[in-house]
Each structure stands twice: as structure tokens, then as C-alpha cells.
Lab assay of single mutants.
Amino acid sequence: QLNAMAHQIQEMFPQVPYHLVLQDLQLTRSVEITTDNILEGRIQVP
């Protein structure tokens, strides 16, 4: 299920590496919260 959620987020934010999306999802278990984390700059994109 997390993989499906990660792919959904990757479609919206292809610039964010998959492993970072998955790592955040493991903590949040939420597409909405992880999306917010990306938008708020809480996930550092190399």
C-alpha cells in the first residue's frame, strides 16, 4: 500500500526521489501529510 501511495505522490512531484517519498510515508502513512511535507520544504530534495 505504501508503494502505491509513493507512486501517486511521485506523479505529482517527479523531482522528489522515490526513496525520500517512501521514507516520509513510512512515518506519516498519509499521502496528504507527505504532500504537505514536500510543499512546505520539509523533505530535502538533492
Rank of each mutant, 00 (worst) to 15 (best):
Q44A: 09
I9P: 00
L39T: 08
V21G: 01
T28S: 07
Q8W: 09
P14I: 03
E32W: 08
D36Q: 15
E40W: 10
I43R: 02
M5S: 06
D24V: 02
Y18V: 08
L25H: 00
N3H: 15
Q10Y: 14
Q15Y: 15
I38W: 04
P14Q: 05
R29E: 12
F13Y: 10
L25E: 02
M5K: 06
R42D: 03
M5T: 04
E32N: 08
L39M: 10
L22N: 02
P46N: 12
S30I: 01
I9W: 02
V45P: 09
L39I: 11
F13A: 01
Q1V: 13
I9N: 00
Q15H: 15
Q26E: 14
R29D: 11
F13L: 03
E11R: 14
V31G: 06
D24I: 05
D36E: 15
L25M: 02
Q1D: 15
T28P: 02
V45D: 11
V31Y: 08
V31S: 08
M12K: 12
Q1S: 14
Q8G: 07
F13H: 07
P17L: 06
L2N: 03
Q44Y: 14
A4W: 14
P14H: 04
E40Y: 11
Y18F: 15
Q1R: 11
V21D: 00
D36L: 12
R42E: 03
Y18I: 12
Y18M: 11
L22Q: 05
Q10W: 15
E11N: 07
I33W: 08
M5D: 06
V45Q: 10
T34K: 02
P14A: 04
P46C: 08
N37M: 01
G41H: 06
Q26F: 13
Q8L: 14
E32F: 09
Y18H: 07
L27S: 12
E11M: 15
M5A: 08
E11S: 12
I38N: 00
I9K: 00
Y18C: 07
L22S: 02
Q26M: 11
Q10T: 13
V21E: 01
Q10A: 15
V45M: 13
R29I: 09
G41S: 05
S30G: 02
I43E: 02
Q8K: 13
Q10E: 06
F13I: 02
Y18G: 04
P46K: 08
P17W: 05
T35G: 05
H19W: 14
F13S: 01
S30Q: 03
I9Y: 02
H19V: 08
I9G: 00
G41W: 06
N37I: 03
E32Q: 14
G41M: 06
Q8V: 12
L25T: 00
Q23G: 07
T34L: 01
D36F: 15
M5F: 08
N37P: 01
L20A: 08
L20T: 05
Y18N: 04
Q8D: 09
Q26L: 14
T35P: 01
A6G: 05
L22R: 04
V16N: 00
G41D: 05
Q10F: 14
A4H: 12
E32K: 14
I38M: 03
L20C: 07
L39A: 07
P46W: 10
V16T: 04
I43V: 10
Q26W: 14
R29G: 15
G41Y: 05
L25C: 05
N3I: 15
T35I: 15
H7V: 11
P17C: 05
D24S: 04
P17T: 04
V21K: 00
D36W: 15
Q23A: 15
M12S: 08
M12D: 05
M12A: 08
V45K: 09
L25P: 01
I33H: 09
L20E: 04
I9D: 00
R29H: 15
T34D: 01
D24L: 07
V45G: 11
Q15K: 10
L27Y: 11
H19Q: 10
A4I: 13
E40N: 12
I33N: 07
I9H: 01
E32G: 08
R29P: 04
Q23M: 12
Q26R: 10
Q44H: 13
E32P: 07
Y18D: 03
P14L: 03
L22M: 10
L2Q: 04
A4G: 09
S30V: 03
Q15P: 02
T34C: 05
A6T: 05
M12T: 08
L39V: 09
T28I: 01
E40S: 14
P14G: 04
D36I: 15
D24T: 03
I9V: 10
N3V: 15
L25Q: 00
L2H: 04
H7C: 12
V31P: 07
I43L: 15
A4K: 11
T35Q: 08
Y18A: 06
I43G: 02
E32V: 10
Q23R: 08
E40K: 15
L39G: 03
V45Y: 14
P17M: 05
Q15N: 14
Q10D: 02
L27E: 13
I9C: 02
